[in-house]
Amino acid sequence: MLSAEALRAHLLAARLAGAVATARETSLRSYRLFAAGDPRVRLGLDPEQSWAESDLLRLMADRCGVSGDPEHVSGPDVIDPDRTLAALDAFAGRLAAAAAARAPVLLGTGHPHRLLGFYASLASALSAAGCPVLTPAQGRCIDITTRFGLRTYNLHYVRGVAMVREPGVRGSGSETGVHSHSPLPVRTALAAAADARTPLPSLVVGDHGWVCGAGQLGIEAVGLADTDDPALFVGEAEGRVSVAVPLDDAVRSDYYRPLTRYVLNRACLSQ
Rank of each mutant, 00 (worst) to 15 (best):
A4F: 03
A6T: 15
L12N: 14
A14N: 14
G18Y: 14
A23C: 05
A23M: 09
L28Q: 01
L28G: 00
R32V: 00
A36N: 11
D38M: 01
D38W: 06
R42E: 08
G44V: 12
P47E: 08
A52D: 05
L59N: 02
D62L: 11
S67N: 14
G68F: 10
E71H: 06
H72Q: 15
D80C: 12
D82I: 04
A86G: 13
A87D: 13
A87V: 13
A92Y: 02
R94T: 04
A98N: 03
A99T: 01
A101D: 10
R102D: 01
A103V: 03
G108E: 00
H111S: 10
F118D: 09
L122I: 08
G130V: 04
C131N: 06
P136G: 09
Q138E: 14
Q138N: 07
R140C: 08
C141N: 15
D143L: 06
D143K: 06
D143M: 04
T145N: 13
T146F: 01
R151P: 02
T152E: 09
Y153S: 06
L155W: 00
H156C: 08
G160K: 09
E166F: 06
V169A: 15
R170F: 06
G171T: 01
G173M: 10
G177N: 05
L184K: 03
R187F: 12
L190M: 08
A191K: 00
A193I: 05
A194D: 04
D195N: 10
P199E: 01
L200M: 06
S202M: 10
S202T: 10
S202I: 08
V204I: 00
V205S: 08
G206K: 06
G209C: 07
V211G: 02
Q216E: 15
I219W: 00
E220F: 12
V222H: 03
G223S: 11
L224A: 02
D226W: 11
T227Y: 02
D229R: 12
F233W: 11
V234Q: 03
E236V: 01
A237L: 06
S242G: 15
S242D: 12
V243P: 04
A244H: 11
V245L: 11
P246Y: 08
L247I: 05
L247D: 05
D248H: 09
D249G: 10
V251I: 14
Y256F: 15
R257H: 15
P258H: 04
T260M: 12
R261G: 14
Y262A: 04
R266W: 07
R266V: 15
A267I: 05
L269Q: 10
S270Y: 15
Q271P: 14
